[in-house]
Structure formats: C-alpha cells, structure tokens
C-alpha cells in the first residue's frame, strides 16, 4: 500500500487564524523538501514565495484582476490606440482574428512582457478621454513563460460587458468565454506546489478497483489504522 502518500503528521497547536494556520502547515511541509533561500518575506519557503511571484506576474499578464473593472478599463485605455483602430465599433462580441506571433510564444521563460498584438498598424488616433467607446477591443498579447495570452473585451454603454480569452498559453485557439469573475490559471504551475497532505480528496467517482489505488484509499487506510491503534492503547 502506498502509505508514503500520506503523512500523518500531528497537528500543530492552533494559534493563528484558521486558514493561516493551514497555510503555514502546508508551507512547512514543502519546506521540508525544498531548501529555503528566501529573505525579506514572511514566508519561510522559497517555493511558496516563488509561486506567489509567478501568480502576481501572471495576473498582470493575463489581466487577472478582472473584477477590478477600473483597473481593466485603464489598461484598455492604454492599449486603446492599438485595439480600437483594428476593430469595428460593433457592440456585440465580434471575434477579432489576431495571428499569434510564433516568436512571442517561443520567448523562453522571460518575465511577462506585453507586446502589441494587432497586425494592423495603428493608423488613426483614437479618443483618449475618460470613457471607453463602445466596441470590441483586442488587448495586447502578453507573454509569460508559458506563452502568449490575449484578451478581448466588449464595451457597451461605456462599460465592459464581456471578456474573451482569444489566446491562452496552452495554445488553445478556441476562444474561451469568461466573464469578469473568471480567472484562468495554469494547472501545471499550481501542481508543483501541491502537497499530498490533505484530509480528503474530491474527484470523479472512482470504480471500486480504482479506489484501491486512490489517494483517498490511502488516507482511509491510514486513518483506520490510527483509530485501531488508539483503541487498543
């Protein structure tokens, strides 16, 4: 049995707020396997800090803080001269075909950098006053270490009504419609920070056979053993 999947460490004395205590525990378990090289941060764990740095940069690149509409508006006002000139002023979500420069996708693990995405030269100057003009705007392509990301917004009545990811770092050409509450992230990035030290596992309903080799099975077995030993002591 894969009992090594499960680490039945005793719980620390809870002195922090609930979630913070759990975060610290997770960080500690990771620190046990990752040498810490960080400084100037409250996190004792290099990987932890790195993940958050990546998350921040990704957020900048992919416009993660989409809920902050003001910030998004500012961003697109900034790129307005690129986007508006290449699109029509239709209010509905017209897909803007933008070729992905292969060079952008191949940029090797550089820090996020924004590059102009439109292949159409920005000709006419556009309105740079406060409100966004109605229409559909393709944002600049931002490249993170996973590849290019491009977001398109639709503005109606001066407000952003729709956000569509035209490109994702995984090369998914099919537009994924997301609203201002959705946040795309990369699973593989988060995966590197995952710990197996969980109480239970949510997943697709396993067959009886696959249950036997599942992480949940290992957890169940470990707990059953714990219960038995405490009963006999």
């Amino acid at each position: 049995m894969d009992t090594d999947l499960h680490s039945p460490s005793p719980p620390p004395t809870p002195i922090d707020p609930v979630v913070q205590a759990r975060l610290d525990r997770l960080a500690a378990s990771r620190a046990a396997t990752t040498p810490s090289t960080t400084s100037g941060t409250t996190s004792p764990n290099g990987r932890h800090r790195k993940r958050h740095a990546a998350k921040r940069s990704r957020a900048a690149a992919v416009l993660m803080s989409l809920t902050a509409t003001a910030g998004l508006s500012a961003y697109f006002q900034h790129t307005d001269s690129v986007g508006a000139s290449s699109t029509t002023n239709s209010v509905t979500g017209v897909a803007v075909a933008v070729a992905t420069p292969p060079a952008a996708a191949a940029a090797p693990n550089a820090s996020p950098s924004a590059t102009a995405a439109s292949t159409t030269p920005a000709a006419a100057s556009t309105n740079t006053t406060s409100a966004l003009a109605d229409g559909t705007y393709a944002g600049a392509t931002a490249t993170n270490k996973y590849g290019p990301v491009q977001v398109q917004i639709t503005v109606a009545g001066g407000k952003i009504t729709d956000v569509v990811a035209l490109q994702t770092p995984t090369g998914d050409r099919k537009s994924i419609s997301i609203n201002d509450r959705a946040t795309p992230t990369l699973v593989s990035e988060a995966l590197s920070a995952q710990s197996a030290n969980v109480d239970t596992v949510s997943g697709a309903t396993y067959t009886t056979d696959s249950y036997k080799i599942s992480l949940q099975s290992a957890i169940d077995l470990a707990h059953a053993t714990t219960v038995q030993s405490s009963a006999t002591s």
């Binding site: 894969d2 239970t200 949510s202 697709a204």
Partner: peptide
C-alpha cells in the same frame, strides 16, 4: 483540507 484530484495524476491535487 480537501484536495481536488488532478485529471491525469491520481495521487496529485490540482
């Protein structure tokens, strides 16, 4: 603490 299983890796949480 609840892990959400990675689709391709049975023993990892996404």
């Amino acid at each position: 603490l609840v892990g959400i299983r990675h689709p391709d890796l049975p023993d990892r949480s996404a």
